[in-house]
Design a protein around this nucleic acid. Structure first.
Lengths: 228, 228
DNA sequence: AATATAATACGATATTCATCGAAGTATGGA
DNA sequence: TCCATACTTCGATGAATATCGTATTATATT
């Protein structure tokens, strides 16, 4: 009947509490087993299996089998990006406990968004690179300037290699806590991996939280002028 | 339990087919009576009344009473903007008939997005104004340049008046058919009203479709360099 | 005052669907 | 070969909720 896009198809999948919890858990960009996801969503394995089948059917997650384990991950960065958009236009989380509140603060400071850096640090770095003229915003994308090419070479990020990947080179990814954009896509991932390689950041198991190491603090300050 | 934004609160309202249809109908930015909306969503008036109460409760629509009629409208342009985002990341409409397909083509060409111009024409004008240096993109907003101020004066758009309105001056609004941005906010609305005033465009009753008049074709060409 | 129209309120019904227990399949290890 | 583990399938249950018939309220028209 309608001549408008079918909103319901997507929202129906996300409305369900358990499925939303599973997807939120997968937003760390890593693979997780079905049991792990069941535990994180506080449901029995059968129920998680039921939901994961639905999510796979609708191309929101993909699955790799390994022995008797099944490892699930978000299907691609477009899915991750879409989920971030939903989060950014949803009411903020209700904080009930002190540990929850301090965890939220750490997430707001620095976290993974699928496979790149998000939160205050991710957004600030993005802004500082724009101000320094290393990258330029063009609609939903970021473009690396001539000046930027030198910068990324100094940092040790291989732009040529990144541009060959089959995914979008660099898109402006909406940040739910900062309500503005950070760098996503291949470039976002390339930077993220390089930070880890340099020992500037560390990831935590079963969490999207990112820890900035002492070496990272001076690195981010020297290269981007970032004060933490 | 979760430290992430509560996605469900909004999506639950949109998942329901009838409510989605009501909101889609309201995306023309106009007031509609409860009966009208019931008819457009193919449900009985009681059911529409039930849904409209829920939508009003959740601040997605507002209602003005006039005699025995109750006129409903989207609450504000933030709601419209959010709906447009949902549309842009949802599967495209299924086309089953010839009339539906031609209606879709007309909508893709030019339509209202709440109270401003969207579709191919809306997006093209936005891009041409950027290329001409009349406006500049800054994160989610558009800024009018010094050159742009002269341009808008020539066009007959009162920027000072628009900037006094209580709504955001000009935000980049996601276009579901073009998958990029057009001008929203007070500036988007100001341009839209001016186009009508100049006789460049015409709206249709009970449709988001916009008709470009012959006078509009030459006007858009002279002022923006737009070829239709 | 009588009647028609717009809309809401309430109650009954039906449908959808998440959940979990029980049972079954697949894999790994002892 | 036997058992433990990871996961799925199936069926029953229960909860949520959209829908509409009927009735009621409010307003307009004659």
């Amino acid at each position: 009947m309608s001549t408008y896009p079918n909103i319901s198809a997507l929202t129906a999948l996300l409305t369900e509490k358990s499925r939303a919890a599973i997807l939120a858990a997968l937003m760390d960009g890593k693979f997780h087993t079905a049991s792990e996801l069941a535990y994180m969503a506080s449901i029995k394995p059968q129920t998680a299996s039921f939901h994961l089948a639905k999510l796979e059917e609708n191309n929101l997650v993909i699955c790799e089998k390994n022995g008797r384990f099944r490892y699930f991950r978000l299907a691609n960065d477009e899915v991750a990006n879409t989920l971030e958009i939903f989060m950014s236009i949803s009411p903020p989380p209700e904080v009930r406990s002190l540990t929850q509140s301090s965890q939220l603060k750490r997430l707001e400071n620095a976290r993974t968004c699928y496979d790149h850096l998000a939160g205050r640090v991710g957004v600030n770095i993005t802004n500082l690179m724009q101000e320094a003229g290393y990258i330029e915003r063009n609609n939903n994308k970021f473009i690396v300037t001539a000046k930027g090419e030198l910068f990324f070479r100094d940092l040790g990020v291989d732009l040529v290699g990144l541009s060959k990947k089959r995914r979008s080179f660099s898109h402006a990814c909406l940040d739910w806590s900062e309500r503005t954009h950070h760098i996503g896509g291949a470039l976002g991932n390339g930077l993220f991996e390089r930070y880890i390689e340099l020992g500037w950041i560390e990831t935590k198991a079963n969490s999207r939280e990112i820890i900035i190491t002492p070496r990272g603090k001076s690195g981010f300050k020297d290269f981007f002028g970032l004060k933490i």
